[in-house]
Design a protein around this nucleic acid. Structure first.
Lengths: 341, 341
DNA sequence: ATGAAAGCGCTAACAA
DNA sequence: TTGTTAGCGCTTTCAT
């Protein structure tokens, strides 16, 4: 059996409390006593039982991070950032993969899945605001992505609409007149794809550039294969676009693959933009221009939100824009849009 | 405050034990009693406190997975597989990122980092066998990757030497005479890079093909940039290779990027092989031939090893090859080695 | 079939 | 400065 405080206390000939004091680095212990207890601890190889400690204190030192999937490098990179930042605060991260399914996301939000965590960072895809109503979990929750109206939690998200505008303006600034959108999704207005689509619409509207619905290529998923499939469809229309703005880098990379196979020159015949700035974007035969959200800042804001509420549980959603925390983003110009084409 | 068993018991007018019985789906409860208790549970919105349960039972339902990094898609994909398999057994996965640093890996192995887990899956990069001596953590440990001799733990790993032989034979079978190895590492004989390098040596030796040391291109890391840098060096030698076998896909992808920039045709002038079969390999301008370890099988063997030892703590390392569990691997032939070049 | 009570390992009042 | 004790919420003998 594992050695407990009691065993150490017996060994050192002191009380349990004294040992606990030493373990927790309490102030008022005589050096001699500390040394004696430490000796017993080392001898017995004692290590605290976190479960017991948690039961008593109500803290585990674990933060849950719920993501749609790890196969998308954006989420993997984001997870890495969260893990780094959490480690700086002596927190461990437990990763929960939701598959982007609404039911699973709602369960995470309710704290039903990872129930041993001090806080929850949830990156939803299909979650609706009402799924968070009557949440009776006491662990602080912070959302990654735009939150719906009236959701009383912090939400960390870049301004997707503005970022999309930046991206599309870059394309029209290159002289492109037929800018397609890859990954359109018309149904769910809270989905990031919808917000980016809106940015696309807005720019094209103000510039008097043609923005008809047939330049929107919807996709089933958000992976490379979906991008390839959608690009193929666009190329097979009567009037193919001269630029595409993809919902994310993965779709854009799938598109680049098809363009390469079909012999369409990038960026000369077709400028391509992604979104996410995953590492892969910097190493294809043609590197990908993309919007780079500040992942480190996202992680920092999320962790800070949780730590703040852990200290002050009654605190509501935070300051800026009614609880919306806005990390920065940058446009990374690379080969896929280089020159004037 | 949160509602506990006691609250439910009071509400239903029964004892704590009876409520516990209902919650745990015990056998001998009258339907009437069950209904009554369930009603109180629903009314109060009771949810069991896992921490307390675990303090009592000694299990958390959490398995730790320690990986060098998440930025490498191979690890991200592997983590996804582990999470899936764990979920099938009602286990949650806590991911720990070691950065591939020996000290961190040793701490994970000792159970010092994630101390609330029922078992530990450790994928080491720099860990030495001696770091696992005198391990005094009671949680079952399983290693991902070849274990050193005399390490009394299960280790799940494909046969790296054999897989490398398969890869290099594929290249020589194409008629290539100067097959370089990208990512050589000469110092650490336990490192997977060393094992793959050994496979490379063995094949070239038996085929009477030139295998001089200047065809080994060492790299500092295992990322795309390192591959690009090493490929550049190889191209700038007097007699560049006509094929390269990279330690992993990331290095190979970096190499492909350089080849594309330099106008070297792949596979005509240069055949390229990777290792890992990350999703990215299937979507470049030139898709990458690679060795595909069965990630799902790796995850399954690792989880099963832990579950087995959880049931029978005294059980030693398992059956096959003294504790080495051997998942399968396949050669995925793609464009980067297609045809006879 | 249900109840009473002990105790998992720890922390935090309170006492000394 | 150190010791005693109660109790976090649960499961689990042992009674009934």
């Amino acid at each position: 059996m594992r050695v407990s405080l009691k065993d150490v206390a017996e060994r050192a000939g002191v009380s349990i409390k004294t040992v606990s004091n030493v373990v927790n680095n309490y102030q008022h212990i005589t050096p001699a006593m500390r040394a004696r207890v430490q000796h017993a601890i080392d001898e017995l190889g004692y290590r605290p039982n976190l479960t017991a400690r948690h039961l008593r204190k109500g803290r585990t030192g674990i933060i849950a991070l719920a993501l749609p999937e790890l196969a998308n490098p954006y989420y993997a990179e984001l997870a890495g950032a969260v893990i780094d930042v959490a480690a700086e605060h002596d927190y461990t991260v437990l990763i929960d993969v939701t598959g982007g399914r609404r039911r699973q996301e709602a369960q995470v939000g309710q704290g039903f899945r990872a129930r041993v965590t001090d806080g929850i960072i949830l990156s939803p895809l299909e979650l609706r605001p009402e799924d968070l109503r009557n949440r009776d979990d006491d662990a602080p929750l912070v959302l990654l992505g735009e939150r719906g109206d009236g959701v009383p939690y912090d939400a960390v998200a870049i301004d997707n609409v503005a970022a999309a505008r930046t991206a599309v303006r870059h394309l029209t600034g290159l002289g492109r007149r037929r800018v397609a959108f890859l990954g359109g999704r018309t149904d769910d207005t809270a989905h990031p794809a919808h917000l980016r689509l809106r940015g696309w619409r807005e720019v094209l509207a103000t510039q008097g550039v043609e923005a008809p619905d047939h330049l929107i290529a919807p996709t089933n998923g958000w992976d490379r294969a979906d991008g390839a499939e959608a690009m193929t469809r666009l190329l097979d229309t009567d009037e193919p676009p001269d630029a595409v703005f993809a919902y994310n880098d993965l779709l854009a990379i799938g598109a680049l693959r098809v363009l390469s196979q079909r012999g369409v020159r990038v960026p000369e015949d077709m400028a391509v933009m992604g979104f996410d700035d995953i590492a892969e974007s910097r190493f294809g035969a043609i590197t990908l221009t993309t919007i780079a959200p500040d992942k480190r800042a996202i992680a920092r804001l999320a962790i800070e939100s949780i730590l703040t509420r852990l200290q002050d549980p009654d605190r509501g959603p935070d300051s800026l824009r009614r609880g919306e925390l806005r990390p920065e983003y940058r446009l990374m110009e690379r080969e896929s849009t280089l020159g004037r084409g």
